[in-house]
Computed example of a mutant assay.
Amino acid sequence: MSRTSNQANGDLLREFLSIADLLEEPRLAQLYAYLARDGEATTQELIEALDLPQGTAYSYVDRLVDAGVIQVVSETPPRRYAAREIELTVTTADGEREYTITPALIDAVGRRETDADIDTYIDRHGIAGLATALTYTVERERGEMSHRLMARDLDISPLAAEIILQALRPIVHEHFDIETTGGSLADIEGVDTDFDDA
């Protein structure tokens, strides 16, 4: 595991465990991603934007502040919170691949409860697979990659590649400065959008 900035080992371990929580709990990831995308917010604004129960929202905010992944930016009531930048590079258990955990990846995880395609992809390929698909989506949106090349590289069906590329497309455009070049499923004749058939 490597990190882009230097931290004491205890701080790094705490941050890693906090990020692991974000990757395991989609609603927690949604809250972090909202702050990373939209900037500062009060707990009440988070409740309204994310449709969270009040107790859950306060609990999540406290957990993320304690974990150090969000910070209080205004102490005067009502308190305002902002996301801290996360960029942590990890190596898979088999040592074969590295991937970077970023706000965009956490945002994608946060959408698994509302996007069946992302949820299915994570179930089949894990967080490391989702991180890889996110990288391919950035390349696709820059015009450097096609769904067929991604499918070949990852040994998945072209349909599965296209579906996850489309699911991740809005996330890429919210987190990266990219001009749109990718196609859509509607542009591909005869493509069935039911992911389970892939």
Rank of each mutant, 00 (worst) to 15 (best):
L13H: 11
L13C: 05
R14H: 14
E15P: 01
E15G: 08
F16G: 10
F16D: 12
L17A: 11
L17R: 14
L23H: 02
L23V: 05
E24M: 11
P26G: 07
P26K: 06
P26W: 03
R27G: 04
R27Q: 12
Q30W: 05
Q30P: 02
Q30L: 07
L31S: 05
L31F: 04
A33M: 01
Y34L: 07
Y34I: 00
Y34Q: 10
A36Y: 04
R37G: 02
R37V: 05
R37S: 12
G39V: 08
E40V: 09
A41S: 10
A41N: 02
T43I: 08
T43W: 00
Q44G: 08
I47S: 00
E48R: 13
A49F: 04
A49D: 06
A49M: 03
L50S: 02
L50I: 01
L50N: 00
D51H: 10
D51F: 04
L52D: 04
T56Y: 08
T56K: 11
A57Y: 03
S59M: 12
S59D: 14
V61R: 01
V61C: 02
D62K: 15
D62V: 08
R63S: 11
L64G: 04
V65Q: 07
D66A: 15
A67H: 07
G68A: 11
V69E: 03
I70F: 04
V72D: 12
T76G: 04
P78G: 03
R79F: 11
R79W: 08
R79C: 06
R80F: 02
R80S: 03
A83T: 10
A83K: 05
A83Q: 07
R84S: 09
R84V: 11
E85C: 04
I86R: 07
I86Y: 07
I86T: 12
E87S: 15
E87F: 11
L88K: 12
L88D: 09
T89I: 07
V90H: 03
V90D: 03
T91Y: 07
T91V: 14
T92F: 08
T92S: 14
